[in-house]
């Protein structure tokens, strides 16, 4: 009984910790722009309104940022996961010299201070014409998500019973059939998990997003949020910003709701087995 009560308290605390700030943004987003501008220090809105969402939905620049973020993150994720799958397969299954070197490079890159790159990258990108373009963001996103993807995938791949492939071949399946029918279904969840984690990373990026873009041509959501323009020429509109924040948080909540098991498995896979 006592443990149950303790668990209940712990549960409530965790839920409060995780959801309270989200509730705060949600509540803020229902405050009218006028209420927030006049100072509205209480938690709940005095007069809830959906106007802020309407403003955000009609904001062409924000729409562009959403398209940019989705497009760039998806492309970067796809490419990154493809490259990582190849690499992780090699690391998990093949015995080759320099495996450790590859893993060390991945580790070093995962720890890399990204800000120290924006200067030279900006300088390079402006010469190559990549500044403020989608590829200009896709490339760095790929590089920085690869370590995470490689780790997650190689951890998953190590668990796959590869003998089954040979068994299938012995049973008369061609190499391709064996790969498609046996290995793909086994590897798919890992690839999918790696893709989600990679997507989160790209979706969350801010440093590259503000440094390597300058217009809505490529500016992603986090940067657009930081530049949000409201009716007050001098201050960002608190409640509209909250509404925009809510709108970019909803996809995350949906992904998390649908795939929580996979995400947790992916996050912890590489870590424990080292």
């Amino acid at each position: 009984m006592r443990t149950k009560v303790g668990q209940g308290i712990g549960l409530v605390l965790i839920l409060l910790w995780c959801l309270f700030p989200v509730a705060w943004i949600l509540s803020l987003s229902f405050k009218s722009v006028e209420e927030a501008a006049a100072g509205s220090p209480q938690f709940l809105p005095k007069d809830p309104t959906l106007d802020t969402y309407q403003v955000v939905l009609q904001d062409a620049d924000f729409q562009r940022a959403l398209i940019n973020s989705f497009g760039i993150s998806l492309i970067a994720t796809t490419l990154s996961v493809i490259l990582a799958t190849l690499a992780a397969y090699a690391i998990a299954r093949l015995d080759f010299t320099g495996k450790r070197v590859v893993l060390s490079i991945a580790l070093a890159i995962a720890m890399f201070p990204v800000v120290s790159l924006v200067g030279p990258l900006f300088d390079q990108w402006r010469v190559l014409g990549l500044f403020d373009t989608w590829p200009g963001l896709i490339i760095p996103y790929m590089s920085f998500t690869l370590p995470l993807a490689i780790w997650t995938l190689s951890a998953f791949f190590r668990e796959i019973p590869w003998e089954m492939e040979q068994a299938a071949q012995v049973d008369g399946a061609t190499a391709w059939q064996a790969f498609r029918k046996v290995i793909v279904p086994l590897a798919a969840p890992g690839v999918f998990t790696a893709a989600i984690l990679t997507f989160f990373f790209a979706w969350n990026d801010f440093v590259f997003g503000i440094s390597l873009t300058s217009t809505t041509d490529a500016r992603p959501v986090p940067a657009q949020l930081a530049f949000f323009v409201g009716p007050d020429q001098f201050n960002a509109p608190t409640s509209t910003l909250a509404a925009a924040s809510m709108m970019v948080t909803v996809p995350i909540i949906i992904i998390v709701l649908l795939f929580q098991r996979k995400i947790v498995a992916g996050l912890t896979s590489g870590a424990v087995k080292g």
Binding site: F122, W125, R126, G129, F131, D132, S214, T215, F227, F228, V229, Q233, F234, A236
Partner: peptide, 18 residues
């Protein structure tokens, strides 16, 4: 963007990229 400082940065970056 809203702030003059930020406007300067955005424009200068584009112009530096010719």
């Amino acid at each position: 963007p809203q702030s003059a400082t930020e406007q300067r940065i955005q424009l200068l970056r584009r112009l530096a990229a010719e």
